[in-house]
């Protein structure tokens, strides 16, 4: 399978439990942590890139859901509001994965969702509030 990026939401009671390592141990899934945070309400958020066999991936996701982890695909989370964007390019040099790039001819800023790891730096940096992130 291709590498898949997912967002995991851990409710408060699961934050201190070892869960992610079992994706490797029991399901042979290779993972790369793109973002991890625990909010003031002690809920956890983890963005992972996963690689492995399709069957294992399905089982692994099933396991997470059974444990009470909410799983959603990453690509839905960062969006660009073309109405607000002025194509200044402030976000372009900050983006760590080149998911935001300037068209050399038109000067227009393009958002390539597939490359986005939802780090949120563009949301913070955009002077016009054109980038939004929702988990």
């Amino acid at each position: 399978m291709e590498r898949i990026k997912i967002v995991l939401h851990f409710p408060k009671q699961l934050v201190d439990k070892p869960i992610v390592y079992r994706l490797v141990k029991d399901f042979n899934l290779e993972f790369n942590i793109l973002k991890a945070e625990v909010n003031p309400n002690e809920e956890g958020l983890l963005i992972l890139e996963l690689k492995g066999q399709d069957q294992d991936y399905k089982k692994g996701i099933e396991y997470l859901k059974n444990e009470g982890v909410r799983v959603q695909p990453l690509s839905q989370d960062v969006s660009m509001d073309r109405q607000r964007c002025v194509d200044c390019t402030v976000c372009v040099s900050l983006c760590p994965t080149e998911a935001l790039e300037k068209d050399p001819q038109s000067g227009e800023v393009k958002f390539i969702k597939e490359k986005c790891i939802a780090c949120g730096i563009c949301v913070k940096a955009c002077p016009y509030g054109a980038m939004k992130i929702e988990f």
């Binding site: 194509d87 390019t89 000067g107 002077p127």
Partner: peptide, 20 residues
Amino acid sequence: GHIEIKGKKVPTSSLSSIRK
């Protein structure tokens, strides 16, 4: 999109919008 400073390739961004 890039300039070189002290031998390092540094990505550039503009605050001013050339499209506008």
